[in-house]
């Protein structure tokens, strides 16, 4: 495919790229934080933790340094001699173009890599860039976060500069396979929030939950695995909020038995102060008993519609107007 220069595009494109249009002569250095997302977006799927095509990894500074079967990918200062740049600017139908399938790098993205290499291809700030928030993350944590992201979860530091993490699976629709669940292992120590809404977990999931000393917030909303987790409940010392809204019971299990097992778990959660237990999990009566047994926990059950009886009958066609 023929290439059209994208200079015109810059007019309506973000200010980040504007220097590229203006300053061809000056070529200001591009910080690594700008290069990192480009590599993540286009390269790491095949040259990363999951696949290592051509024995090349572009997800670590070492990998970038070492190159792959075709040799070094970087010649600092000379983009034109760097494989990393050469291969991405080939025409789309060229056999050697990278990425080989899918979307080519946009012109601004190519420029980012070119200018970064031209200025010496510094990997300074790698950790900050990969964490996105300027914090240091160990390689195994990084790999775990990226693996979880690839599986459709949000996974990242709790907030800027935090050493704790949150992982949110709520938008994933498939059962979580054991190997994705295993990616939580390296994070378990620092995991603070875990959202498993709607998720079917692998069989031995409960034991890992028991190894999360800092877990504060756990959502198992509408997760078919709650009943399974309750088979062998594990203590979670720091857990403050638990959501089991709409969780189905084991087949054939009576409500009272389910309540008893939940109560058993609650006893091992000393810090718990909020429990979402609506969605038809219990009848009002059972919930009342449970609440009485755990007065310190604020339990949110099924929503009840209430209105002053003399004001509005929800089933009436028209509301009465009250004049006084």
């Amino acid at each position: 495919m023929k290439f059209f220069p994208l200079v015109l595009t810059l007019v309506c494109l973000p200010k980040v790229w504007i220097p590229a249009a203006k300053a061809v002569a000056a070529e200001p250095a591009v910080p690594f934080s700008e290069v990192y997302p480009v590599l993540q977006k286009h390269c790491v799927k095949c040259h990363g933790p999951e696949k290592v095509k051509g024995k090349l990894r572009l997800d670590t500074p070492e990998g970038l340094e070492a190159g792959g079967v075709s040799g070094a990918v970087l010649v600092a200062g000379v983009p034109e001699k760097s494989l990393l740049y050469q291969r991405i600017i080939l025409p789309e139908d060229d056999e050697e173009v990278m990425p080989p399938s899918g979307k080519k790098l946009s012109e601004p993205e190519q420029n980012t890599l070119r200018k970064w290499i031209a200025a010496g291809a510094s990997r300074e700030g790698w950790n900050a860039a990969q964490a996105g928030e300027g914090i240091q993350v160990a390689p195994e944590i990084r790999d775990a976060l990226l693996k979880l992201r690839a599986a459709g979860a949000y996974a990242g530091p709790r907030h800027q500069g935090a050493s704790t993490y949150c992982v949110d699976f709520r938008l994933r629709r498939l059962p979580i396979p054991a190997e994705v669940w295993a990616a939580l292992e390296p994070l378990a120590e620092g995991l603070e929030e875990l959202d498993l809404s709607g998720q079917t977990l692998p069989e031995d999931a409960a034991s890992l939950l028991g190894r999360m000393p800092r877990l504060r917030r756990l959502s198992l909303r509408a997760s078919p695995s709650v009943a399974e987790i309750l088979r062998v409940p594990h203590p979670i010392p720091a857990l403050e909020f638990l959501n089991v809204f709409g969780s189905p019971r084991l087949p054939g299990e009576p409500e009272s038995a389910f309540a008893a097992r939940l109560a058993e778990w609650l006893r091992t959660l000393p810090a718990l102060r909020g429990l979402h237990v609506g969605g038809g999990v219990f009848s009002g009566e059972t919930l009342k008993e449970l609440q009485a047994a755990f007065p310190k926990i604020d339990m949110v059950g099924d929503p009840v519609l209430e209105a002053p009886p003399d004001v509005t009958d929800p089933q009436k066609e028209h509301p009465p107007a009250r004049v006084h």
Partner: peptide, 8 residues
Amino acid sequence: LAEPSMRG
């Protein structure tokens, strides 16, 4: 089936 994630 596996959509990009919340805040991802």
